[in-house]
Simulated scan of single mutants.
Amino acid sequence: MLENKPSKLGNLLLEIGVLLMGSGANTHRIRMTINRIADCYNYKTDFLITHRTIILTLKDVEGNTAFTQLKQTNALVPNFRIVSGISRLSWNLVENKLPIQSVWEEINRLKSLPHYPRFVVLLVVAFACSSFCRLSGGEFLDMGIVFISSFSGLFLKQEMAKKKTNPYIGVFLASFFTSLVSGGIVFFMSSNQQSIILVTSILYLIPGIPLINSITDILDGYSLNGMIRGINGTVISFAIAAGLLLAMLIFKTF
């Protein structure tokens, strides 16, 4: 049947792999999901997953190469709706042999799901940072300062992302601006928790996904991807520290 042609399946698997990589999945999950879906259509896979590219080869039941192609991955934009949705889809395929066209329709549906409203994201992230301030010993006034500074910093980061600014420069500027706002408020409104305010106001910039995936990839044996993700997380952490340091120098907080 036309829908079972290797090129149709190969392009589908590449699209799934790229979506998972760009949405924050680790390498082992990507490999397991692609293999699971390919097995449902009686094909075996050989592929290479790197930070920037996925190279896929499909082989039929006789071991003949039926499809080989590569596809570039997207920039990391965490979206666990897509990760969980593709996982459910793959297990649904194991139980119900869906046609490839139906799988494509579900993939397109997942891609078209709306994101949370921008204002909601800003509020929730700012509230999370202010909550960490409270957990670290800050008072309610300190929480308010953290809320305002993290809200402002994330807004700036989103604006720079829309303008396709270099992500590392974007993190540096967001860290600097957030620290500048929080430090400026503290400067005019005396507080005994300067360090707590400065640190918790930039928590939204911490590269948790790259660092966690780096560790899991290395433990799963995908050392190259793990090291690349670890370096990426380290550079982001350095950008955060540089922005914070610059703001601290301005306000002479040490």
Rank of each mutant, 00 (worst) to 15 (best):
A126E: 02
K97F: 12
N96P: 06
W104Q: 06
F119W: 11
C129R: 05
P117A: 01
L141Y: 12
W91V: 04
S175D: 07
S152M: 10
K163L: 15
F119E: 09
A174E: 00
S150H: 08
G137T: 03
Y168V: 06
F140G: 00
S152L: 13
G144A: 08
G170H: 05
L113T: 13
R134Q: 05
Y168K: 01
S175Y: 00
W91T: 03
P114M: 02
N108M: 10
E159W: 14
Y116C: 03
E106M: 03
S175P: 00
V103M: 11
F127R: 02
M143S: 12
A161Y: 04
K157L: 15
Y168P: 00
L156T: 09
S136A: 15
E95F: 08
T165V: 15
S150I: 05
A128I: 07
C133D: 03
E106L: 10
S90L: 07
F151G: 02
S112K: 09
G144H: 05
A128M: 08
F140H: 06
F127V: 10
G144K: 09
L110V: 11
N166Q: 04
P117V: 11
G138C: 02
G153D: 04
F140Y: 11
K97I: 14
E105A: 10
E159Y: 15
R118D: 06
E139L: 10
C133G: 09
V120P: 00
S112I: 02
F119I: 15
Q101G: 13
F119V: 12
I145M: 15
W91F: 09
S149V: 06
L156A: 08
S102F: 04
Y168W: 00
L123W: 02
E95Y: 12
G137A: 05
L141D: 07
E139S: 12
I145R: 05
F172I: 01
I148R: 02
R134P: 00
R109E: 14
F127N: 05
A126T: 01
R109Q: 14
M160H: 05
Y168D: 01
E106K: 08
P114I: 05
K157I: 11
L156E: 10
E139H: 10
F151L: 12
V171H: 00
E105I: 04
P167M: 07
R134S: 07
E159M: 14
I145C: 01
T165L: 15
L113G: 08
L110G: 08
N96S: 13
F132V: 06
H115N: 14
K164N: 11
P167W: 07
L98F: 12
L113Y: 10
F132P: 01
A126R: 00
L113E: 14
V121N: 08
L135S: 06
I107V: 15
F147S: 03
S152C: 05
K164G: 01
E159A: 14
S102E: 12
F155M: 14
E95S: 10
R134V: 06
A128E: 04
A126V: 03
K164P: 04
C129E: 10
K162W: 05
K162P: 04
P114E: 07
G138W: 04
F172H: 03
S90N: 09
A126Y: 01
A161L: 08
E105L: 09
H115K: 12
S102L: 02
I107W: 04
L110R: 02
V103H: 01
V125A: 06
K111D: 10
L98D: 07
V171M: 04
P167F: 13
A174T: 03
G153H: 03
M143F: 11
Y116M: 08
N166W: 06
Y116D: 08
F127K: 03
